[in-house]
């Protein structure tokens, strides 16, 4: 599903540059649920952004579903992001002047889907996250957990192969975090491949595999026994 070989990335800082990723090798199979952990500055978010085609690596190979992701034009990257990837952000990143339904329908708009079909599909996904009644509310009228659920519905709308989550529970309280995690686990149970960046041990333990990064290299990569979030809810 996902193959990363000897990936390097550095950011220029003034005259010098900061070497963030120093040769990452990672392979993820379909149906996995992987947590990427590490202290801040370890390079975990950078890795996720490169996987999400939101950022580009300096060198190394990245193959997603047998497609080499390299030197993509902006246009092509946009198509790939739309087709293969769903994003869940810590700060939700909903468009504030669009209501929940319109936010969820946006990736479908960029797929060129017809308006009516788009809205039906968006409503279906909102229903799945339990927010059908909130379809016509603006993000500012929703709670943090509700916003994140809208964001998840949006990430699912385009039916992506890979779901990328950057600290999905970072802005939520514990109860809401567990609720969101239970939902993400359910998606994984249904077969979605999920990659998640977090620095919280209890959240990471709800995944099936933990990859630990330190100073730009993988320190540890081991499967874990999944803790079901539903038992806390």
């Amino acid at each position: 599903m996902l193959e990363i070989k000897n990936l390097h990335k550095s950011y220029p800082i003034g005259d010098s540059s900061l070497h963030v990723l120093k040769g990452i090798n990672l392979s993820v199979k379909e149906g996995e649920m992987v947590a990427i952990m590490g202290s801040s500055g370890s390079g975990k978010s950078t890795l996720l952004n490169i996987i999400g085609m939101l950022d580009e690596a300096d060198s190394g190979d990245y193959i997603l579903d047998e497609l080499p992701i390299k030197n993509l034009t902006e246009k092509k990257a946009a198509v790939y992001r739309n087709k293969f990837l769903g994003f869940i952000f810590q700060s939700f990143n909903l468009i504030n002047y669009k209501n929940a339904l319109e936010n969820v329908a946006l990736p479908l708009y960029y797929q060129g889907m017809k308006r009516k079909q788009r809205q039906e599909k968006a409503l279906f996904h909102l229903e799945k996250v339990g927010l059908a009644d909130w379809a016509h509310h603006l993000p500012k009228e929703l709670s943090g957990g509700q916003k994140q659920r809208v964001a998840i519905a949006r990430a699912l709308a385009a039916n992506p192969k890979l779901l990328l989550a950057d600290e999905p529970t970072g802005a939520l309280d514990t109860a809401t975090s567990h609720e969101i995690m239970a939902f993400i686990q359910q998606l994984n149970d249904e077969g979605k491949t999920i990659l998640m960046v977090t620095h919280e041990e209890d959240i990471a333990s709800m995944c099936k595999r933990i990859v630990r990064l330190k100073d730009g290299v993988i320190m540890e990569d081991k499967p874990v026994t999944q803790v079901r979030a539903s038992q806390y809810v």
Partner: peptide
């Protein structure tokens, strides 16, 4: 800018 970033993450082409 942020809205543009969101749209791009969701698959908006530069032209759009």
């Amino acid at each position: 800018t942020k809205e543009i970033g969101i749209r791009k993450a969701l698959g908006a082409s530069p032209k759009s």
